[in-house]
Design a protein around this nucleic acid. Sequence first.
DNA 1: CATGAATGAGGGTTCATTCAT
DNA 2: AATGAATGAACCCTCATTCAT
Lengths: 226, 226, 226, 226
Amino acid sequence: MPKDTFNNLPEEKRNHILEIAIHEFAANPYDVASISNIVRKAGIAKGSFYQYFEDKKDLYRTLIEISTDKKQALLTELPSPSPWSDLFNYLRWQFLSTVIFEIRYPDLSQITFRAFVEEVPFPEMAEELRRRGTTQFFKQMIAQGINFGEVAVWVDSDVAAFLLETVFYQFGKYFIKRLGLSESSTLDIKIFESEEAQQLIDNLMDIIEAGMKRSPKQREDYFNKG
Amino acid sequence: MPKDTFNNLPEEKRNHILEIAIHEFAANPYDVASISNIVRKAGIAKGSFYQYFEDKKDLYRTLIEISTDKKQALLTELPSPSPWSDLFNYLRWQFLSTVIFEIRYPDLSQITFRAFVEEVPFPEMAEELRRRGTTQFFKQMIAQGINFGEVAVWVDSDVAAFLLETVFYQFGKYFIKRLGLSESSTLDIKIFESEEAQQLIDNLMDIIEAGMKRSPKQREDYFNKG
Amino acid sequence: MPKDTFNNLPEEKRNHILEIAIHEFAANPYDVASISNIVRKAGIAKGSFYQYFEDKKDLYRTLIEISTDKKQALLTELPSPSPWSDLFNYLRWQFLSTVIFEIRYPDLSQITFRAFVEEVPFPEMAEELRRRGTTQFFKQMIAQGINFGEVAVWVDSDVAAFLLETVFYQFGKYFIKRLGLSESSTLDIKIFESEEAQQLIDNLMDIIEAGMKRSPKQREDYFNKG
Amino acid sequence: MPKDTFNNLPEEKRNHILEIAIHEFAANPYDVASISNIVRKAGIAKGSFYQYFEDKKDLYRTLIEISTDKKQALLTELPSPSPWSDLFNYLRWQFLSTVIFEIRYPDLSQITFRAFVEEVPFPEMAEELRRRGTTQFFKQMIAQGINFGEVAVWVDSDVAAFLLETVFYQFGKYFIKRLGLSESSTLDIKIFESEEAQQLIDNLMDIIEAGMKRSPKQREDYFNKG
DNA sequence: CATGAATGAGGGTTCATTCAT
DNA sequence: AATGAATGAACCCTCATTCAT
């Protein structure tokens, strides 16, 4: 919730400030990210900053929101399969968009990642993040997948959601490192046309799918294990 | 490599200082962790700290080493299945020990986790960590599993290792939260006698095993997918 | 190159801070001069200092520049004989101005002196000082003096320049002590109206002049020495 | 005045400590020279140091004394012309020994130099140094030289002594730099056999001699100047 | 609405010195 | 006589935030 002063700014200036702030908070943990750095690089007065934002925390909250919004926008932009028709297809799609998000907005992605793994110094925000985050959504999908017979009945939906979320948050960075992409890569989505990229994503998704899918063999294994 | 001064300290005092330091570095990223805080809580003079350690980095290195050592000690303490006889059994055991480590030493676990996901300000140490870390080990095991027919041939060993490592590092925290264990839990290993705990671990491992295991059905799926 | 913040300060405050800083750096070698002392005496916050200057080195550089500038201003203020008409007259004048500088700005003089004899912790600045310093200038003048027949041909211009510079840098302090002048002497240039002061300067300059001047006797001595 | 404890030390150990201390105080101004450094390099306990010396000041005083003593020893070691037979010959000799001292004991020389130009934080010691130093001695010699007709009558003996002392203290460093000698030069006195070295010293001394010597020409100049 | 000077607490680190062993 | 742990003040520097203009 930046102040009105900030929202009334010319869009260009507003974005300039935000970009620099995003870069700073991506590069450093919350406490280390420096307002002084941001205003210096943005070329605005220290005092101005505090007329735009309540305080450091306010800025941070704004960045998290931006990240969430951009992610949402990306999701609606990409052609989406119905989550209800084919669960694993849908997960594959979710997965793909996470990677695209990472490539398109590496800094925002990093900020969200930090919020996920570090304890941001505001417990209430971490909680909020998790609520609005993917965890609950994943859990519901898995649960429904079980009901619809797509997912093996023995799968604990909470455990599966944890696994999905955890891997999702880290895969972007792994993907980039594995493919040797520079961070400032402007190839964007074209990357996914390469065979190697496709195989990478498919491979991970295949493992996950095989791990959860309901199949006679798995059912048999499960009930015989004892 | 703390100075001799530190090693010559009475064990009680040494441990007292280390515990407080461990807690500080578990609670904060490296740059935020405060030597001033540590000496204040430990009740020692600022100057004394620098008789014990070269500098902040030296202390940090020491904590990482302690963590590595304790983890190693735990591994040798637990009855270990051969990694070569049954891969998934072995992974299950590795997994279990990670969780036990998390419960027994939550702060050390958190420090290692930070070293894994945050950019530690010392590239050379991150490298060392990764070398001594589990990534390479996992990859080799998966590769061998493929050769021995335990793991599906289509699995990319690097992707699988990424998945394993990522989940391993996060599962401890999830486990504790899921079971509602306070951090200072002294129950220790007895926790695992509870049915709920066992099911939690088994469930995750079952997913992973099902996801990678070689099976006629999976092979068929794979080659038909195209 | 202090920051704008400093240059925008009211002149009085700016000068107040500079005076205190000058006194501190005159009284102590660079490493011993204390920013904490300066801000305490100047009555400003520690943080304010770093709004004015980049760091300790920046302040020091500023002081050196002030000294150079004031020296230059003094030189242009005093009626100057041509260096090319009568070398020794010119040296006498240079000499006189050094002493006046020492009396008018004893602290600045001391700072320059320190930069000259102590190892300033910044090699690049020492180099710069020496380039802009008097050494090269003296050497050239002596060399020309030899060509023009004013200076004895056997004089090594480098040695002579060394002698001149060395004595120049130290004479101010000697002068003050010899005449028993308090440092805060406000008499300024009137001092030089006293017979004693005049004689002091003349005496030293006479020795130097006699030592270097070309004369039949000296030439004879020189060539007979063998 | 080190404590007895120090004097009872095996000579080798004593010298080892002193050498390291001398190096430290040569490399740094008094306040910057670090006891911690010294004991670390000397391999002795911090506490031991304070059983050898009263405090930092005590050590420093000792070093100054050592320097004075070594200088004295060198003077008696070198074949000395009588100061009373030929003043300028004698000065030349004094001068030569200063340079030799600088080359043989560059660190001690540097310490004395620091005591001479920096304000050592103990005014009483600086005073003592000056009393035991060469100033008074030079002045007396010049005065006698005037009486004996060697030195021009118009020369102010105090001014001349100042000039001599100032140049003496700085010439060593200039000499070394001019001849491009490394500081660790082991050539020692052989250096002076080189023509260049001889010429350097002679040139400076010739200037000084010509500047002060009584001669008909100079007298004439002097009395005609008015 | 923008500015940027002012603040003081806190950061990591080094120091000379003391004192119990 | 030797040791080396303990001390706390001091060092330079950065920080988020306030407020008068």
